[in-house]
Write a protein that binds this DNA or RNA. Structure first.
Lengths: 193, 193
DNA sequence: GGAATGACAGATATTGAAATCTGTCATCCG
DNA sequence: CGGATGACAGATTTCAATATCTGTCATTCC
């Protein structure tokens, strides 16, 4: 079935499929090897441990969200509106993933709990995007932020309710959207010069 | 050992002890009855189910925090400082419980996960205290909040990072205190008239 | 008569033996 | 010779038998 050489990339693709099919509890390295048509020893040539393989899958998954938000970050436009949209996009992306395919979302949440290092890196990337938006706003006189990096962490922390997966069960509620706007409104007011 | 009549209050006290000793997974109604020196049927006279007993324990535990914060809420003084102190006290109380006796804290977190209704009520009580502080500030011209109840929910949501037990592992970090001040500072700025 | 008991049925948890998986490595193949 | 293999040891998971627990209720006790 597998075409050509066995690459790390191909293993990651198949691992995603196996995780989707069997779930995080039952997906084994042997399953991945079987789906690839190779021995499990070959998988271990590319990933030192099962944990490393799962972390790589998680990294890929989180990277996709980072990429979508990076485009927003780099786009032109006033910083306050951009920050609002950046947060709204993050919220909407997470809410969509959670509501659309709850099982797959649950699977990735298990992976995320396992891979704290990968998540820390993800958070750092996102906070850095927020920091860049804040700095842009400070330059344009739209924001006051003596320490943009610290403010970025604060903004990210204050909106955890809307992007941290542990709150996913509440994201479908009718009031979630309104509460999001309230929090973001408060933060944008707090950032005014 | 037990003195006099069997009361709901006495059962709750002993249940707390049993939970502390055995943990949430192993503490049984039979254990509670044994510690009380009665048959387990007698416990069921006061609490319809094991879940109801655990919820009552949770309610009592959360009520103690509500009470401490209520005193702060009712005290005189400028609203901005009071809101800051209220949030700082909540943070400190949680952090202290988590750091002081991690096992007991973990036990109560298990109970909390089971008792969503009780927790919702607790959150409502705390948000109401925040709302009263906000209204006080609006009256004194210290805050601008067209809808104090909505702003109270926003303030509570934005500080989840510092009172939601799922974040407890990060509360000991050196930067937690600083991040708390950043978030609260941003919120207080956002509430200014 | 109101509170407590303990035997009971069905549900849940524990246990230990068997099966499977993870990670290594000597060997094989192109 | 670099990459793939599959047998292997120790760790983990599964499964089914056994034990315990939950919640009820007819009976006992004060």
């Amino acid at each position: 079935m597998a075409t050509g050489t066995l690459t790390a990339e191909r293993i990651l693709e198949v691992t995603e499929e196996v995780l989707r099919r069997y779930g995080p509890a039952k997906a084994t390295v042997v399953d991945v090897a079987r789906a690839l048509g190779v021995s499990h020893g070959s998988v271990y040539r590319h990933f030192r441990t099962k944990a490393a393989l799962r972390e790589a899958v998680t990294h890929r998954w989180l990277g996709r969200t980072e990429q979508a938000l990076e485009e927003l970050t780099a786009a032109p436009g006033p910083a306050p509106g951009k920050l609002h949209d950046w947060l709204a996009t993050l919220f909407e992306a997470k809410r969509h993933k959670a509501g659309d395919d709850p099982e797959l979302f649950a699977t990735y949440n298990v992976l995320i709990d396992e891979s704290s290092g990968v998540v820390d890196q993800h958070v750092t990337v996102l906070e850095d995007q927020v920091r860049r938006i804040l700095e842009e706003g400070v330059s344009a006189g739209e924001f006051a932020a003596p320490d943009p990096a610290a403010s970025a962490r604060a903004v990210f922390a204050a909106t955890a309710r809307f992007h941290d997966p542990s709150y996913a069960p509440t994201w479908e509620s009718e009031t979630a959207e309104e509460e999001f706007e309230q929090v973001v409104g408060l933060l944008l007011r707090g950032l005014r010069p």
